[in-house]
Design a binder for these strands. Structure first.
Lengths: 206, 206
DNA sequence: AACCGGCGTAGACTGATGGTCGAACCGGTG
DNA sequence: CACCGGTTCGACCATCAGTCTACGCCGGTT
């Protein structure tokens, strides 16, 4: 967990550290990111770094949390649909998905960070950081889930955590697939088909 | 790529190396696995290890490939259903899924290896190994996909690689969720509901 | 018997990593 | 001035993956 001291640092120095860390993690992932490079780029000593952060994973969790919170605030919540019913809910989800993709395309470093986060189940050191990050993202996801269920758009016969896990898994798969498309493919991503698959997996059975 | 020399080693020594590597990777994942520990446990020198394997990722890929091939051979293919039609295909898939879960429960080290493989998109070194492993697993997956499509059980309006990516993502999510259940939960895993979600995401739209 | 070439082994060595630690520094207070 | 808590520093540590040189052994050739 970031030490509270960090918040008392002059904002300029906080920024320097966070930007250096964001650059390093975004371009090298977690494992191949080098703390030595971060402290060089940030212009601080190793001692100072460990004075403010528990370890490498803690630094990663903090910079990721800051960036994700900014992103979620930017994109805005999945709006409670004006009219009731599943269709309105799912089109709100699709609108959010499209917006988020647009935002991520405009901030490639944050996109890279998100991908590192989603794809880092392997590293035990990162798993602690995962927990901290989930504390940021999960409540948000759960609100969306409950909204969907109260709209009759999401099934209620399976545990919430399973539904969320499946949604995340599908989202990660779609993201990976979108990334693997050649960059010169100017066609807009088929968000309709992707959200449609998510919908059919999660909506109540008739 | 494993050097062909490795196959000419006395089987006992091959076994010693593979078993040491399996133990290490299964209990520590990829990144935290230590080659030094592997060579100690296997009773060989570092020079010998690098005489037979390109690097750490190569060793991982080899041991994973050996174990996965053994697993797939054990469980057997997704049988071409005796009668035609989507229902028969999807119940064959469920049967395979249940069998595979049973086999993995009986071989926890292999299960751990599979989890390391699925969750290792982050590490660039492992990505080369991923490619090698995919050469083992993907053809198998594609055969299943084509079988499903020819049974009318799987949609044909989206690219195959997207369908496969989504299926893998859902499988990984379900596996993670199954793992997170308390170990004293003796209820059999809800494979029906899980394969049902997969089915609704992948089957043709009416 | 003497020699040779190469396969396989050994382990010291390299450069880098994440993380630790004690010393030094600095602004404020008595 | 003396002290002190919060902060900064960088040398240092263990360990890592990977490299490199030396060497022992063995089968074949002369």
């Amino acid at each position: 967990m970031v030490r509270p001291r960090f918040a008392r640092l002059p904002p300029a120095q906080q920024q320097a550290i966070l930007r250096a860390a964001l650059d390093e993690f975004a371009t090298h992932g977690f494992h191949d990111a080098s703390l030595n490079r971060v402290i060089d780029a940030a212009g601080i000593s190793k001692g100072s770094m460990y004075y403010y952060f528990d370890d490498k994973a803690d630094l990663f969790a903090h910079v990721a949390r800051v960036e994700f919170e900014r992103l979620l605030a930017d994109v805005g919540p999945v709006a409670r649909p004006p009219e009731p019913g599943p269709d309105a809910f799912w089109s709100a989800v699709e609108r959010f998905y499209r917006d988020a993709l647009t935002r991520l395309a405009a901030h490639p470093r944050v996109a890279s960070l998100a991908r590192t986060w989603l794809g880092a189940s392997e590293n035990p050191a990162l798993q602690r950081a995962q927990l901290e990050l989930e504390a940021t993202v999960m409540p948000w996801l759960e609100r969306v889930l409950v909204l969907g269920q109260s709209s009759g758009a999401v099934r209620t016969d399976l545990p919430s955590d399973l539904l969320i896990a499946v949604a995340i898994g599908m989202g990660r798969a779609m993201d990976t697939w979108l990334l693997s498309r050649p960059p010169d493919d100017t066609a807009p991503p088929p968000t309709g088909a992707l959200v449609g698959m998510l919908r059919r997996a999660l909506e109540p059975q008739t």
